[in-house]
């Protein structure tokens, strides 16, 4: 029988060399030999604490940036108008509502286009974030199944994309304001900024929860579309606040209207941007009602503060739900 010696096998690992020819840059960053005690220890277990998870998501913020950029690049990649669509789409929606309510409903609201735009801005942010995040885990099944990263980032990226569109639309609004010679009520700028933050947190909370649940109940993706259409009319976006406010006030039910988190954001936007338009706060003719809500700045801040707290609690719950169902994503997709 043949006598065969064992082939050389790497036995004693040498200490890692400072740099090898092709991975020079990388190893250099590690600074040569590594000390294992310095290495962070990662734990994969059934239960992970929220703090730990938040830290992981924070560590993945660069990834979040890449995902948002990817989404912006890819979405309109093969279309003729390309990136223009992100401007055209909301502009056309705005036009449709404008035509319907100005010429068919004969609304008496001054500068109706601006009024519409104020309400549509926070709504569009919420709407696009939810619509695209609900299906994002399913759409990205390839990564979810094969790569380990905090998957909440996928849902958050959709919120981020919606935030980018929000910024584009804000640019158009500025053009509108210049065109119509409308000056926002700068006193209420803090209210507006707070509303943007609240909008982002609220959208993120629902986006994270819905994206996770949609993996198990794929209807959510479709159901959410209908729900959002209905929800659109629950805020005074296409109709003046006074229309509903007056009637509800008679029954002491305004709080019901304000309990809708989105209403508080819409009202804040309107108060800041539309506040200086004639008839917005002070009625044009006696007997008429102001178009928008006429609460004090403090009231807006308090209302939004409450919604923000609620949204944060919601976000915490959403992350709990997400983590609870996350363990089996790779299997369910």
């Amino acid at each position: 029988m043949a006598q065969v010696q064992q082939a050389e096998r790497p036995a004693e690992p040498e200490r890692r060399r400072a740099a090898s020819s092709s991975s020079e840059g990388v190893t250099a960053s590690a600074g040569g030999a590594r000390h294992w005690d310095d290495q962070p220890q990662r734990v994969v277990a059934a239960k992970v604490s929220t703090v730990h998870r938040v830290r992981e998501i924070w560590a993945a913020r660069e990834l979040l940036g890449f995902l948002i950029r990817k989404e912006l690049k890819v979405r309109y990649k093969s279309s003729f108008l390309g990136f223009l669509w992100s401007f055209l789409n909301p502009a056309m929606v705005l036009m449709i509502y404008f035509v319907v309510f100005r010429f068919i409903e004969h609304t008496t609201v001054q500068n109706f286009a601006i009024y519409l735009f104020c309400g549509l801005l926070p709504w569009n942010l919420f709407n696009t974030a939810l619509l695209s995040s609900a299906g994002t885990l399913v759409a990205n099944a390839g990564i979810v199944k094969k790569v380990a990263f905090p998957r909440e980032v996928l849902a958050l990226a959709q919120v981020g994309v919606a935030g980018c569109y929000f910024l584009f639309q804000t640019c158009i609004l500025v053009l509108f304001l210049v065109g119509f010679r409308v000056m926002p009520d700068w006193k209420y700028l803090p209210v507006l900024l707070l509303a943007v933050v609240v909008d982002l947190v609220f959208s993120a909370a629902l986006a994270v929860a819905l994206s996770a649940l949609n993996v198990y109940m794929r209807d959510i993706e479709h159901l959410i579309q209908v729900v959002l259409v209905a929800l659109f009319f629950a805020e005074p976006i296409v109709y003046p606040f006074s229309l509903v406010g007056k009637r509800l006030a008679d029954h002491h039910l305004v709080w019901l209207f304000l309990a809708n988190p989105l209403t508080s954001m819409v009202l804040a936007f309107q108060r800041c941007i539309y506040g200086n338009v004639a008839g917005a706060v002070k009625p044009l003719n006696p007997g008429a009602l102001p178009v928008i809500a006429t609460y004090s700045g403090m009231f807006y801040l308090e209302l939004l503060g409450v919604v923000l707290l609620g949204s944060l609690v919601l976000l915490y719950l959403a992350m709990l739900i997400f983590r609870r169902v996350e363990g089996n994503f790779a299997e369910e997709l």
Partner: peptide
């Protein structure tokens, strides 16, 4: 997949030291 963190174990835990690529 459990070690990689793609799947989560139903019970028990896995401790990893260092940067991981799967």
């Amino acid at each position: 997949k459990c070690v990689a963190g793609v799947l989560k174990p139903t019970k028990g835990e896995i401790r990893l030291r260092g940067q991981l690529a799967a």
